[in-house]
Design a protein around this nucleic acid. Structure first.
Length: 417
RNA sequence: GGAGAGGUACCCAAGUGGCCAAAGGGGGCAGACUGUAAAUCUGUUGGCUGACGCCUUCGGAGGUUCAAAUCCUCCCCUCUCCA
């Protein structure tokens, strides 16, 4: 706990690692007043309820929020159950799936469970913006929309780029920043925090808050973490993410797959490593004293430790070395229970079997894998596309290094589903 | 309302009657190599089949033709300019 620090010291802590802080002076001023009045600052983070898996990109922001909490401030975690239906205009997503009430609630619970790996539950309030946006009348919407101009809206890079490129921009997308702004109006937010891609929305919110006669929120943006591909920002829909609630082995393995140039970046944004430590490591790698592979292993272990503890980190590292350096079997090999009806004369086409077990998406794909030597049965590579095998209990099927299934042949096959 | 351009596989994009299950790139997957699931190189990338081959797919529905992503009709959607 770092509660009770002087406002100027708080500013120092809070601005560290930020892309932008608008305005630093305002923050200091607000902290001073709050401290005099003995109240915490109200800090807002908005979240889209469509993909409730929190990944390392979100964690960058959440860890900053945690700092706010440790300084004694109050977090409002706004679940965008209303705005989520408008459709997030950033990025490629065309139309968002409409979520049902239950889905939203379920996703919100998933969120809560995960954010508390990082946030302090005592100082976190989870709220739903449908509660106030859903009550806004059309007249209220018009009033809100009258507070911002088309020209200013088009300043947003995302809109103007799509507009110039001839990609459709729908009118309701303009409502997205406005709705987000109204969240801040409703909650009388002191500080809003988010990824640097949110800068436009946050700044628009400041103006709109002023228009409603409120003090504009202070804006704090943080770097966007690149995904595992090193190109796009991390996001679940792009599949380049590492979820903080993913299995430790998965977290470890996925971090081992980042391209080398990304190593310092990940250390900086995903671990507690300070700039000095990172710089030292970069130098060591440049000198050849530190193998990038080992740096990555350190990164992976550190991140796993952060969210799953020491033991999980050790185990994940061990498993990774076993599977990928020594080519051993993964520790958890799922069983597949083969239906005897698939057998013909005690045998079954290997391609068919691979498709059944899920090791290949289809029998055609299985044939391709076979042709490429990517399939092993009980340790031996099988090449022939049309190969038939005589399955036996405990037979081990492997595709590539990562996927394996153990065959089970029950004598009794009572199926009640 | 008028004029024009477009809609192709997971994504971008070529293809304007048969040689098209559809070029190329990205992404994915597999193999080689390695220091790792990095980088690089190679292969592969609709489904069914041991195989010959068959079936489904180029916005949607019909039609012409021995043969349609490609031609015709209607419809839906997007963009640009004009009003």
């Amino acid at each position: 706990m770092t509660e009770g620090l002087s406002p100027s010291r708080q500013v120092e802590i809070l601005r560290e690692g930020a892309v932008q802080l608008i305005e630093e002076g305002e923050l200091l001023d607000r902290l001073e007043r709050a401290s005099r009045e003995g109240r915490p600052l109200r800090v807002k983070l908005g979240a889209d309820p469509t993909a409730p898996d929190i990944h390392l990109g979100h964690a960058v922001v959440l860890r900053k929020l945690r700092q706010f909490q440790d300084l004694g401030h109050q977090v409002y975690f706004v679940v965008g159950d209303f705005t989520g239906r408008i459709g997030d205009p950033s990025g490629r997503s065309d139309t968002r799936p409409l979520l049902t009430e239950e889905q939203v609630r379920a996703n919100a619970r998933t969120y809560e469970r995960q954010i508390h790996k990082i946030l302090d539950p005592e100082r976190t309030r989870v709220v739903f913006n449908h509660d106030w946006l859903g009550r806004l009348s059309f007249a209220g919407v018009v009033q809100l929309a009258a507070k911002y101009t088309v020209a200013r809206m088009l300043e947003r890079d995302d809109y103007s780029r799509r507009f110039k490129a001839g990609v459709p921009v729908y009118i309701h997308e303009f409502l997205y920043p406005l709705a987000q702004a109204y969240d801040s109006v409703h909650l009388r937010v002191d500080v809003e925090i988010g990824g640097s891609d949110q800068t436009f929305n946050f700044l628009a919110t400041r103006e709109i808050m002023r228009d409603y006669g409120l003090e504009p929120q202070i804006v704090l943006t943080l770097p966007l973490l690149e995904g595992l591909d090193g190109v796009e920002k991390m996001s679940k829909s792009l599949g380049n993410h590492v979820g903080i609630a993913d299995r430790p082995q998965e977290v470890y393995g996925r971090l081992m797959s980042i391209p080398d140039p990304l190593i310092p970046r990940y250390f900086e944004l995903c671990t507690g490593a300070g700039p000095d430590q990172v710089a030292a490591m970069v130098q060591a790698m440049a000198r050849g004293d530190l193998n990038p592979r080992d740096a990555k292993a350190r990164l992976a272990a550190e991140v796993v430790r952060l969210y799953h503890g020491d033991e999980a980190a050790r185990e994940a590292a061990e498993e990774f070395d076993a599977v990928f350096r020594r080519g051993d079997l993964p520790s958890e090999v799922p069983d597949y229970r083969l239906d005897p009806a698939e057998l013909e004369g005690g045998r079954v086409g290997l391609a068919r079997l691979l498709a059944l077990t899920g090791l290949a998406a289809s029998a055609s794909e299985a044939r391709r894998l076979l042709a490429q030597g990517g399939v092993r049965v009980d340790g031996g590579v099988v090449a022939g596309e049309g190969t038939k095998v005589r399955p036996r209990d405990g037979m081990l099927l492997r595709v590539g290094k990562r996927k394996a299934v153990r065959l089970r042949l029950g004598t009794c096959t009572i199926r009640d589903d």
